[in-house]
């Protein structure tokens, strides 16, 4: 960072860390103000509404939270949200780790193609992809039409409006968020390490398990964290592919606000979802650097 010195010299400070504020910082003011007004203020307003909007007049500021946790249906939705997020994360890990590993050992050209296969869905519309799953899974959809035509079954098997359907759709949409961080970490592992293990007599699988796997673990943690946290907030996919039984908390928030116009409970659930998301992030940040987790997406 020697090159920074001239700027420091001109600002007339001589502390070894450089000045506390330099001129480049001024450029961030406008974007900060923008995010403050149009992103942070909305989040703060939602949080405030959870303690100021009430269906019935009450003296208890946390009446909405009491109402939320008193209802078994609400707790079921919360539990289901965690359950579906966990299932999707497990599927993504089971498919994503071998895929990233394959990307890491094939020739660069093939790895590039495998990367495009991840990036195309990563960037294509979530709604379009969910719609595609609907077309495939519904009773008159591709799978059931095929099964009926080939007389394997007499009536359509339930695929849409099931937890399986939600899980398939969510895993497919979230898989890139698992592959990219794992691949980013694997790419930085020196292949000499596993070769050294092999030269010292380790059979291939032992070399993988004792050397490569532990080194790739930071990527696994980052991917698992990203997928799980994003899965907690899914709305469109469970709404189109799931049954009422599969309702996730985002759908509950949307219907509270849109249909029941119950902003009190809607914003309360929003705060709870936000709290859960941050709790997962804070716990995870004890094991990995969050900026690395997000950073891996930068390289995509």
């Amino acid at each position: 960072m020697r090159q920074l010195r001239p700027v420091n010299a001109r600002s007339g400070r001589r502390s070894r860390e450089g000045p506390i504020v330099n001129r480049w910082a001024l450029l961030a003011i406008l974007p900060i103000a923008f995010l403050g007004a149009f992103f942070l203020v909305p989040l703060v307003v939602v949080s405030l509404r959870s303690v100021t909007d009430f269906a019935k007049p009450t003296g208890d500021a946390f009446a909405n939270y009491g109402r939320f946790f008193a209802s078994a249906a609400n707790l079921r939705v919360l539990g289901n949200t965690f359950w579906v997020a966990t299932l999707s994360t497990v599927v993504c890990l089971a498919l994503g780790y071998p895929y990233a590993y394959l990307m890491n050992i094939v020739r660069p050209r093939v790895a590039g193609l495998l990367l495009i296969a991840v990036l195309l869905p990563f960037w294509s519309s979530l709604l379009v992809r969910t719609y595609a799953w609907q077309v495939i899974l519904r009773d008159t959809g591709i799978i059931n039409t095929f099964l009926l035509d080939s007389k394997v079954v007499d009536e359509p098997i339930p695929l849409i409006r099931t937890t399986l359907g939600v899980m398939l759709g969510m895993s497919q949409i979230l898989l890139p968020f698992m592959v990219l961080p794992i691949y980013a970490v694997m790419r930085r592992i020196d292949p000499e390490y596993t070769k050294a293990a092999a030269n010292l007599g380790a059979p291939p699988f032992a070399a993988f398990r004792r050397v490569f796997l532990p080194l790739s673990l930071p990527g696994v943690l980052a991917g698992t964290l990203l997928v799980f946290v994003l899965a907690l907030g899914f709305y469109i996919t469970p709404a189109l592919l799931g049954s009422p039984k599969d309702t996730m908390i985002s759908q509950f928030i949307a219907s509270a606000v849109q249909q029941r116009l119950d902003w009190g409970i809607g914003s309360t659930m929003a705060v709870i979802l936000m709290g859960l998301t941050f709790a997962v992030l804070v716990i995870a940040s004890r094991f990995i650097r969050l900026r690395d987790a997000f950073g891996s997406l930068e390289e995509s």
Binding site: F38, V46, L230, G233, Y235, A254, V257, S267, T277
Partner: peptide, 15 residues
């Protein structure tokens, strides 16, 4: 990127 989009949605709507 990480705050659940439904929360952003109802927050922005509200404001």
């Amino acid at each position: 990127l990480i705050v659940p989009v439904i929360i952003i949605a109802i927050g922005m709507f509200s404001v």
